[in-house]
Simulated assay, not measured.
Amino acid sequence: MMKILTTASVAALTLAFATEAMAVEWNASLWGKRRAFTEHVEKLAELVAERSGGDFTIAVSYGGLSNNTENLDGISIGAFEMAQFCAGYHRDKNRAITVLELPFLGVENLDQEVAVSHAVYDHPAVAAEMAQWNAQLLMTSPMPQYNLVGTGEPRVTVDSFEGMRVRATGGIGAMFESVGAVPTSVTSSEAYNAMESGVVDSVAFAQHAHLSFGTLDIADWWTANLNPGTVNCPVVVNIDAYNDLSEEHRAILDQAVEDSIDYYLENYAALLEGWESTLVEKGVAKVSVDPAEIAKLAEGAQPIHQTWIEEANANGLPGQELYDLAIAEIAKAKGQ
């Protein structure tokens, strides 16, 4: 009898160890604090754990694993399995997706931003460039068109941008520079200090970031309708870690992406609904830019588009093809 029990116990222990060995724990590197910009990653972690019965978990870290400008490097060496980053932080490492950061592309809402981002992510040239960093694009972090908050007199004309020191990255920064502003690419976490100390006069962010990083707390005004473009911030996974997943866990992860994006969009919509009252509460004036001034900026952005295409081609990327894809997908999304 003892022999039988011992055999059964050994079998149970073996099964327990095998089950434990199959459990997968991933780390995801983000920055700042939990906010609208990170809700899809939080939802993804929740869904993966729930649908795997706890056998596949993702621990979300805000700055504990890496600097926000080094998340792609961390992915490349396998320091963590998942990360979020913004293309404008290191344009030389992710040139292809910067097509999505060009000013005045014509994106009108977050649904369109999701559609065009994922279409570009699926392009073979984009996947190949990311693979150089052992990274695979999983999903976007859709953000509304950026707008400015600033101190002093509102900047609402093209002429008023002359000499303006603005925190703006990527194509938005290039657009402001083209009309005489002085862009700086300090990270989102540094924007508040830069504005408070007078290093910059204004900051270009989406609404959630103005809230999360405190720039709204020290601003005098906000441009309601400038809408020059946005920044593209994907969530990526380490290719080796992704390939090492079981078929079941990989399917769970892939299938959770759409649900996570849907949750993100619902959550962001709620934030936008309360935006007007937030401005009033914080004493920030809502200012509008005359459509004629916006038209001047949009017209001036066209050479920036052409320069992007030429530089992409020079770097071995199909620049015209990626640009045409982005424009076509935006038109398609608007048609839908």
Rank of each mutant, 00 (worst) to 15 (best):
G300S: 01
F17G: 15
L253Y: 06
Q207I: 10
T57S: 15
R155M: 08
S277I: 01
A127V: 07
M130H: 08
A328N: 10
D92N: 08
V114N: 01
A119S: 13
A131F: 13
E276Y: 06
N27E: 06
P154D: 11
K43L: 08
T230G: 11
F104P: 01
T184Q: 14
G163C: 07
D240F: 06
A12F: 09
T169S: 11
L211Q: 05
L72Q: 08
G170P: 02
A251S: 15
F176S: 00
F80L: 05
A119M: 06
L322V: 02
W308H: 06
T19D: 08
S117R: 07
P303Y: 04
I294W: 05
G63E: 11
Y121D: 04
E81W: 02
A127H: 03
N227S: 13
D244Q: 15
I58Y: 12
E39T: 15
L13W: 03
M1V: 14
N71K: 08
R250I: 02
S141E: 07
G32N: 09
N315D: 13
E293Q: 15
V114T: 08
T38G: 11
L30K: 02
A128I: 01
L30V: 02
K334L: 07
D240I: 08
D217P: 00
A270G: 03
L325R: 10
D122V: 04
H210W: 09
N238D: 15
Y268M: 07
A314F: 05
H208K: 00
A292H: 03
R35L: 03
E20V: 10
E258N: 09
